[in-house]
Nucleic acid binder design. Structure first.
Lengths: 318, 318
DNA sequence: TTTCTTTGAGAAAAGCTTTTCTCAACCGAA
DNA sequence: TTCGGTTGAGAAAAGCTTTTCTCAAAGAAA
């Protein structure tokens, strides 16, 4: 039995008798034959391996993205190198070089904010690169969540519940996401109340409540928060003041970070950026590029989704 | 210039004139020559690739382990496949098969608790397997944190601050970690107060405080918690009751989960399991096995460390 | 000058698949 | 019987390195 005959039998290629083909397959199964992916890759220039580059140490955003990528690609036999590069350009280069040496089929760059580049040069690489939840190079494919739409979802939900004095407490104005979300808030809720920019911390949530409740005039009847941590702090701060959530004030978060959103009392209604879906899309897109298919460059925006829990009141079906 | 001469020049092997060697190296640098790791691996049976298998979806424990592995191995040119298999045996098999096809040099199995196996059969694999923060097969190398010592650290710290009525609120007794920590607590703090077993949730923390404060007799002057989430809830619950932390009651957590420990008011003093160091050790150990070096099988226990913040009072240097 | 030794460079094989070509055998048709 | 066509199987090359072997040339010693 020649090697080439065996190869053709197992790959269902070439011409040969059905009986021979079956015999080869049986024998292969019996000895537990596994084709060597390295040899295959050497020949085909496809390693069924991609690299995920990120500077998100805690995996806050990258893990869901990674989960999506893996979910989409595992069926295609693709495995993923996860490379966390902190914000160290040297480390980034080391990891990228290692990936290139191993001939990954493509690289997905990811991060912890949408408006910052990873500290690595990914231009002129011999493999396709796409960006997910991080700023991409011009002419590249970039996936990100639709902050405007997500924020609109939150504000409209509050308005649908009859809330009219909606405040917005959020993170640093330097973040594009923050500005986008604030824009949606302004467009829908008007400018009766100031947007409160601050930090992404619980401390800021507490301070914001103190500020809102020390202002003259009617108090807010709803607060749309820039992330779940702030929302949680706000819920805590309101409780400490004797303000009831959701009876007196509805609170909406952003991120649907389970560990925060679900543990808050009451659990947070919040906007989910669908990072897993984003990862799936990103994964399928590198795969397409790796296979030589054409992909339109540009920024692809994926819609957010509102996760309804109990911090707003109202029935889940409105 | 022959291929073999070039190879020898670049690898500093073989006999050749210094001038030739230099010339080859210059030329290689100039054209940006990268040896193909696949071809190299095909020959040497080393791919400088390992797989990290985990069922810890949120990366709570796996991410620090992963960071340690990467940190230890990136200098050796090793890249890591991260495979999250939830608790799905089929998915596990798919990932393991993919890794074997790609000829990883070794596999590290990791998880979210020390006394559960991953739902995959890792015996009789053609590559070395080691376990980190999950139950290992008999005769294997397993790394885990020293729960007893970590708990002792916490209790001794509280006693060193003069606390005498120390309570212990922790997770489900079914966890080995829980029992180990409780044992250390008992050995050091005696049995004046019951160990309160419950859930790993904030809700349980609140309930535990309610229970402790409704009991007859003197109230605790310190609470050692099974994890940071419980500790956080306990700090919150105490504040709501008007009990001051750390003046009236000292609280110690477990895990040093920054996102919880650092955001608690006051920030938590807590036990860090040194998962990153654990990852480093695990990484170096698979590498050793992959290189054919002998490694003593057994369970390696790494010491925990106390991270002092403000929830206990006392000066950081005692 | 001849022979031995040393030195530097290239040839070839191995590692594992896939793919393309070649070739022998067999069948049916002329 | 002979020729064209079909069919099944094997040989060989390619993909990229490393390593071992061979060999020619140059230098040194006799």
């Amino acid at each position: 039995m020649s090697i080439s005959t065996a190869s053709k039998a197992l790959n269902n290629t070439g011409r040969m008798g059905d009986e021979t083909r079956e015999r080869v397959k049986r024998a292969a199964a019996e000895i537990g034959f596994r084709p060597n992916a390295l040899a295959k890759g050497l020949l085909s220039n496809r390693t069924f391996t991609i690299g995920l580059l990120t500077n998100d140490t805690y995996g806050r955003f990258t893990l869901p993205v990674m989960a999506g990528i893996t979910e989409a690609l595992v069926d295609h036999g693709v495995s993923v190198f996860l490379c966390t590069i902190e914000d160290d350009p040297a480390l980034g280069k080391v990891h990228v070089d290692a990936m290139l040496d191993k001939h990954v089929d493509g690289i997905i760059a990811s991060g912890k904010r949408i408006d910052r580049r990873l500290p690595v040069d990914l231009s002129n690489l011999p493999v396709p690169v796409i960006y997910a939840f991080t700023e991409g190079a011009p002419g590249s494919v970039t996936f990100c969540a639709d902050d405007y739409q997500g924020a609109a979802l939150a504000v409209e939900w509050l308005q649908g519940l009859g809330r009219r004095r909606i405040a917005h407490v959020t993170g640093p104005e330097s973040f594009v996401s923050v500005r986008e979300r604030a824009k949606a808030y302004r467009d829908l809720a008007g400018d009766e109340l100031p947007v409160l920019y601050g930090m992404w911390s619980e401390a800021w949530g507490h301070e914001a409540v103190a500020r809102l409740w020390s202002m003259d005039g009617a108090k807010p009847d709803a607060i749309f928060c820039g992330n779940d941590q702030i929302a949680r702090a706000i819920v805590d701060a309101l409780r400490e003041r004797g303000v009831r959530v959701p009876e007196d004030v509805s609170v909406v978060g952003f991120d649907n970070w389970e560990i925060v959103a679900a543990q808050t009392r009451p659990p947070l209604t919040t906007v989910d950026m669908n990072l897993k879906a984003l990862g799936r899309e990103a994964g399928l897109t590198v795969l397409a590029l790796a296979e030589g298919r054409d992909v339109e460059p540009g920024i692809r925006t994926l819609p957010c989704e509102l996760i309804v829990r109990q911090s707003c009141g109202g029935s889940p079906d409105r």
